[in-house]
Design a protein around this nucleic acid. Structure first.
Lengths: 209, 209
DNA sequence: AACCGGATGTTGGCAGTGCCAACATTGACG
DNA sequence: CGTCAATGTTGGCACTGCCAACATCCGGTT
């Protein structure tokens, strides 16, 4: 995957990917504000302005990098979900939802630059929804968990519509507040407590007793 | 509030406030990325670099503007809370919490620039908490509502600690997702539905039945 | 095989920004 | 009345986004 600095010829050959790689690295350490076209071009071993052959402008570039960040979140979610191995279907479904939520907050705290970037871009008309990478779309992943909960009887069908709104809001809000809100720099044990409380509320409010 | 362009003398006399006013206006229309020192200085009728006598750097300036944005949010909250006039104390307390939450989302949707700016800054060590403007701090306002709910018996005392985490996360997460997340451009009626669901979950999970 | 056109990358330039250094003005306080 | 520190200005450098003109090369056509 390392494109390195092997510019053998005039044309790069894989510049778009190289730029996205560089952008992902920039986002990781500096957040969305650090995703610069010139810096990414330099890092890709190419002169400035070359990037304009692949991205309309900086906003477009950041949006593309943001999509990658969102994918990273989805990948961690999948990893954590697949780590759940309970045998009972109902228990497993609940635990998978919990794993998804914990993965969300874990990602935000471990990779704040990626997390902030993922939610910083404003695609004019997001073609991300409905694209081919739905397999790792966090939104789709959450929906699948909720569907499963209905299937095993843990979530009342009449509560299913719009259940994403509540679940997603809870974990996303907590993550945001821990990073950039009044809960910033909350001590570690208190973070765990906050996690417990949010999940407990969602459990009691959403699922069957 | 308009400080105008009355630079009668060499010294402005009230530059810091004028810069903050300009910054607030910039944030309103363009979000945190539009809060620039040179632009604000120009708008204040002063030359660039004058701002450095009042703010260490851009980050410091944006953080100060962000505090103003947070205050705007607090002011709207107070306005909406004061609009609740139910006579029964228990009912009133619940309605006030609801009004607070609705004000939060209302603010985010009506003033996205301010909302994004309020949560974009990273004060090295936030002196905002504990400062003199606690009267309008959204965090403090929420705490007061929860305390009241305990006082009137609608919130079990053992559930009070950490209740902010859940309530705040719910409304903040929903607001964020509606602005910059997958719920962006959700049609109006669906927004109301999402609001209902989130509040319903919080009600069922937090308060007494 | 020669050729040509479009895709891709480069150089140069302009406007805007953050921030540093040196200088100017003035109000406040002795 | 004088001095000085606070406040504001001018000039400059480095960096960025983006536009225009030019260079190179890959791929398909004849």
């Amino acid at each position: 995957m390392q494109s390195g600095t092997d510019q053998r010829s005039y044309h790069h050959g894989n510049l778009r990917t190289a730029l996205l790689d560089a952008g992902l690295e920039l986002a990781r350490t500096g957040g969305p504000a650090a995703v610069l076209l010139r810096t990414a071009s330099r890092q890709a071993g190419v002169s400035h302005n070359a990037a304009y052959r692949h991205f309309a402008n900086q906003e477009d570039f950041v949006a593309a990098v943001a999509e990658q960040c969102m994918t990273q979140l989805g990948l961690l979610m999948i990893e954590r979900i697949d780590g759940v191995t309970a045998s009972d279907p109902a228990v497993r479904a609940r635990m998978k939802l919990g794993a998804l939520g914990r993965a969300y907050v874990e990602f935000a705290l471990a990779e704040p630059g990626w997390f902030r970037t993922a939610f910083s871009a404003v695609r004019p008309h997001s073609s991300a929804v409905g694209a081919g990478s739905d397999r790792v779309s966090p939104y789709v992943l959450l929906g699948a968990r909720l569907d499963e909960l209905v299937a095993v009887g843990e979530l009342a069908p009449e509560r299913r519509p719009g259940a994403e709104y509540a679940a997603w809001s809870g974990v996303h809000g907590l993550s945001s507040l821990l990073l950039d809100g009044p809960l910033r720099e909350l001590p570690e044990p208190e973070i765990d407590k906050a996690l417990q409380i949010v999940f407990n509320i969602l459990d009691r409010g959403l699922l069957r007793a």
